[in-house]
Write a protein that binds this DNA or RNA. Sequence first.
DNA 1: CTCGGTTCCTGGAGGC
DNA 2: TGCCTCCAGGAACCGA
Length: 305
Amino acid sequence: MPELPEVETVRRGLAPAMEGAVIARAELRRPDLRFPLPEGFAARVEGRRILGLKRRAKYLVIDLSDGAAILAHLGMSGSFRVEEPAVLTNALPGSSGDTPGLFYLPRGKDARHDHVVFHLEREGRILQVVYNDPRRFGFMDLAEGTALDAHPFFRSLGEEPTGNGLSPDYLAARFKGKGQPVKATLLDQRVIAGLGNIYVCEALWRAGIAPATAAGALVRGDGAPGARLVALNTAIHQVIAEAIEAGGSSLRDHIRTDGTLGYFQHRFSVYDREGEACPRPACTGTVARIAQGGRSTFFCPVCQT
DNA sequence: CTCGGTTCCTGGAGGC
DNA sequence: TGCCTCCAGGAACCGA
């Protein structure tokens, strides 16, 4: 699924189209995604103005004028796209509708999986924001009021990897005593909110830490972060910042809201590079793949120790 | 509480 | 071309 950088890219793509617009109609083409959509979802959002778009972990937060907020998680294969039926003249190569003025469908998208359509109106112009999700692992909810941190989705989330809250001391406190492989701990949204399989693999490679290392082994006996944990903290911050800057990674389903691609996948050091030479200068290792918790982990057995 | 395994769903890739 | 198996960016859930 889209991890944090991809969701942030989606947010930045949707914001210009959605902010300030009124939801004229919310079209639900099926009653559920991964979970049932909330009771009366369409009626509760129609007529509301969109104040702004935020992101928390891998969730998109759409703030509405009545204090409610739409929470959207893209799961593994969810994506949003913006269609401007009256204006669009730049249908993309390879899109299903290449007649100017008509809708387009970004590469690889199937209209059968367009599950939710927000019909927006702003200054007399209509545009549509379409949620497409083939695997339907995504979900949406409506949060009333402003107590977002108390919402069940958000209550247990850990620190964002984009701010000062994620620090060596924070990681030391959370890792201390844990026998779990550090790979699994980094994927735990209660510890760090927003990392997924790709960026965990990349961060561990950058920090030179073997994915099977017990998380607690990176913490000193007195509870202070060890040098490798300090390096891991830096690696996480850097890889996430670079990926956001690159517009995320485009693999399979992820695509930007305008149909273009992020390009961070070209900068992967180990993810999906099994059998290739480790890119670390002077390292003679070969990227390996193992399974941890049923997921693939990519790493260099030589320089990650 | 932690941990590992399973599950939801569809589609793409690769083997034969 | 077709059929089969495996795998995929997530995370809730269950049982030990």
